[in-house]
Design a protein around this nucleic acid. Structure first.
Length: 776
DNA sequence: GACGTGGCCGTTTTT
DNA sequence: CGGCCACGTC
């Protein structure tokens, strides 16, 4: 601190401090010791962190490699890296900057020996974990009717978040219930198999380094000396294990700066402890506490509404956010007859502002992923380009996972999950019988699945599938040759070509297989990009990153598309215009959480914070909406009540739009008699608030919702159907290499990419891409 | 061993 | 309604 002061005194000011307010400056300058920055939404948090890092590097002259900065998303890490790079140039490359999990991988790679792992260990994702647990359940004769693998996954996750390994006495003491007893047994079995497969899961990435550091003071001291300055973003989301890691890493000097906002704590369900941020000043006493309360993002209206909402919570530090921005537009609150009308309303409103607002500056937030489908439908019908965050992630697609399974097996010969997947994709005549035998042998001989398979072959016991299995391993071993000296994409290309994955898809020739081939091509592109930009161009390095990418990272502001995402994904982002939809009881707050007595109402408070996070994303204009009727997953339309949270939004900030039956629908109830300043009745907006630019694309139901009869005729298709493409016509014939001659039933799309539905005698109805067909 | 069909189950949020 | 899994058939 004295050092900073000197620099300030001599130069008077510094470009890095330009444009920072007094609190922000204080946060940048308090470099030594423990610092807690309570940063309200939109208070310039990222700016403070990046300037602080830059300040450490230059003028303070701290070598970049002595600085460790951790975030929760790759996107935040990347943004931070870019902004620091802007300030200090190439020196930023030496920073240790990444997500908790990526830093965990790096640490664990170095500590592998201490943790009893080979450095080539694999990272099992939730899917691999689930499969393994299902296998264990079967082996332990646990009927899935009673406990589901998912429950065990959650148990294990929770244990690891608290750094409790399966041998931990505290876990055994707590195992009195039937479930806990079973879960603990499953956990033990699970860890055994993970070790054999030389694999770790997400929880291990934090817990294992912590265990090593706790056990070995010397290793800990070395590491703590290496990182002289540690920074953490979104500190309110850290769990116990992460907090432990921080304590060890800073044990030599205590230079720990954490930035967070208790009002934005929305991850308690996955182990985040708000207590970490609340107790920080005591745990790291004496700590400097700095509050950033000036909001630079939103209009006064949006800020007031958000603040009013979150003030409904009792458990909070209590900041008072303020802004010098003007009032701006009122908040729009729309009540729509149904979820479909709501989605159409969003689409239409977006469509109506396209000439004024860039699509990339618009986002729609909802509580559950399931809400996205109806929105997607509307976006498609209105021909609005969109990105969907969440949902099926690229790296979760079957074909991508198949290719990655091969890659993992190349890098880590013990990767059981990778082996079990690769050996059956593409199909090579090896099935459950063989693999059951392999796994039985693996369990007996304490081997990973692939090693067990090799062992069976060596003993001449491969059964009928000896040769197939043998061929598989020859293929794998051949591919493995020299992979450490090749670029990731070169190995990837080798995998696609030699595994038969590409050929299998090419032979299929369906529209889906075409998509899948493109996904594989995209995978190669991602590998190539990684090889160009990462420290290490190898496949191993690529796989490390792949396991840790989330979908938000794909959000690309360059593309002119609006974004659809859950409220959780919204954290850390900002947009000019936002829509927060589905504000209904049971959805937001969610039905599983509305019980106020549960956990002292803390769950309910988290729901409120979640909405607060969503609301504080908007810079200029916010739309809130709810549907009076929502279709459940079983297809039934259920009546709904407006969210209780809407009552906490001051009505003078809100303009009600397009409400059918507005007296009963308003969350505040019927207006007081004679109240002239009540929001405009719905009729006003109904009559002409919209002038549809593309009437043909608009379903008439928006104007008269009750005329809509749900049914197949409801959809206005985007793709023109019934035309001919490349000489094919419905009713005509076409030839396919595998299926032979077939009758064309339907054509969708144009040119070589057209999707043609045909009936092949003996094969049935298939969808095929035009370019895979030849004229009859 | 591969592939097809039928039953069942589910949706809170994810690094 | 739709996706996944278990079971049955070829």
């Amino acid at each position: 601190m004295a050092f900073s002061q000197t620099i300030l005194d001599s130069s008077g000011d510094h470009p890095l401090l330009d444009g920072l307010n007094a609190d922000q400056r204080a946060a940048v300058l308090a470099t030594e010791g423990a610092v807690l920055v309570l940063a309200g939404a939109g208070s310039g948090k990222t700016r403070v962190i990046t300037h602080r890092i830059a300040w450490l590097v230059d003028p303070l002259g701290v070598p970049a490699w002595q600085i460790l900065a951790m975030t929760f998303t790759n996107k935040a890490a990347r943004e931070m890296g870019e902004r620091v790079g802007h300030a200090v140039g190439s020196r930023s490359r030496d920073l240790w900057l990444g997500t908790f999990h990526s830093v965990g991988v790096r640490l664990l790679r170095q500590l592998a020996g201490w943790a009893g792992l080979q450095p080539s260990f694999s990272i099992y994702d939730t899917d691999d974990q689930g499969r393994l647990l299902a296998k264990i359940c079967k082996a332990q004769n646990i009927p899935e009717s009673h406990y589901k693998p998912k429950q065990f996954a959650s148990y294990i996750d929770k244990a690891k978040n608290r750094c409790l390994g399966p041998d931990d006495g505290r876990l055994h003491e707590a195992a009195f219930g039937a479930f806990e007893k079973k879960a603990l047994a499953v956990y033990e079995h699970y860890e055994r198999d993970m070790r054999l497969a030389n694999a770790v899961d997400f929880g291990d990435l934090i817990m294992r380094p912590v265990q090593v550091l706790a056990k070995d003071p010397e290793v800990c001291a070395n590491l703590a000396r290496r990182f002289r300055y540690v920074l953490v973003d979104e500190f309110q989301d850290t769990n116990f294990a992460q907090f432990e890691l921080l304590k060890f890493l800073t044990s030599a000097h205590g230079n720990l700066c954490v930035v967070g906002d208790d009002d934005q704590s929305i991850y308690s369900w996955r182990g985040a402890e708000v207590g970490n941020i609340l107790s920080f000043p005591e745990v790291f006493a004496p700590a400097t506490v700095i509050k950033l309360e000036r909001n630079y993002r939103s209009t006064a209206t949006i800020l007031k509404a958000s603040t009013a909402l979150v003030q409904g919570n009792r458990n909070r530090h209590g900041k008072v956010l303020w802004t010098e921005s003007g009032e701006g537009d009122p908040i729009t609150l729309a009540a729509l007859p149904s979820d479909r009308d709501e989605a159409d309303w969003v689409a239409r409103t977006v469509d109506g502002m396209r000439d004024r607002v860039k699509l990339s500056q618009i986002a729609v937030f909802y509580r559950t992923n399931a809400c996205s489908r109806v929105l997607e439908d509307s976006m498609r019908r209105f021909r609005l380009p969109y990105v969907l965050l969440g949902g099926m992630k690229f790296y979760e697609r079957a074909e991508v996972k198949d290719a990655l399974a091969w890659c993992r097996l190349l890098v880590n010969p013990d990767d059981s999950a990778g082996f079990l997947r690769a050996v059956t994709s593409p199909k090579r005549g090896i099935g459950d019988t063989t693999l059951d035998a392999v796994q039985a042998h693996a369990a007996r001989a304490n081997l990973s699945a692939p090693e067990a398979a090799r062992d069976l072959l060596r003993r001449g016991e491969g059964g009928r599938n000896r040769e197939k299995l043998d061929g598989f391993f020859k293929l794998v071993d051949g591919m493995r040759d020299g992979i450490d000296h090749l670029r990731a994409n070169q190995v990837g290309e080798r995998v696609l070509a030699l595994s038969g994955l590409r050929k299998a898809l090419q032979d299929e020739g369906s529209p889906e297989s075409q998509d899948r081939l493109e996904n594989l091509q995209q995978l190669l592109a991602a590998m190539s990009e990684h090889a160009d930009s990462a420290d290490e161009p190898t496949l191993r390095s690529f796989l490390e990153n792949v396991a840790l990418v989330a979908d938000v990272d794909a959000l690309n502001a360059d593309k002119e598309r609006l974004a659809l995402m859950t409220m959780h994904s919204a954290k850390g982002l900002e947009f000019d215009v936002t829509f927060v939809v589905g504000l209904e009881e049971g959805l937001c707050p969610h039905a599983n959480v509305v019980n106020e007595s549960a956990r002292d109402g803390r769950d309910l408070e988290e729901e409120r914070r979640l909405l607060y996070v969503a609301m504080t994303r908007a810079r200029k204009k916010m739309h809130l909406s709810y549907a009076k009727q929502r279709r459940r997953f079983d297809g039934l339309d259920m009546p709904t009540q407006p969210s209780r949270f809407l009552q906490q939004v001051p009505r003078e900030l809100v303009q009600v739009e397009r409400v059918q039956d507005w007296r009963s629908a308003l969350p505040w109830g019927a207006p007081a008699p004679g109240l002239r300043s009540a929001p405009a009745p719905a009729a006003v907006s109904r009559s002409g608030a919209w002038s549809p630019s593309r009437p043909s694309a608009l379903p008439g139901s928006l104007l008269s919702p009750h005329q809509r009869a749900a049914g197949p005729g409801d959809d206005v298709p985007v793709i023109d159907r019934g035309g001919s493409a490349d000489g094919f016509a419905p009713g005509g014939k076409a030839r396919h290499a595998r299926f032979g001659l077939g009758q064309v039933l339907d054509i969708a799309g144009y040119g070589g990419d057209a999707q043609i539905t045909l009936n092949f005698p003996g094969y049935g109805v298939k969808k095929v891409i035009a370019r895979y067909l030849s004229p009859a």
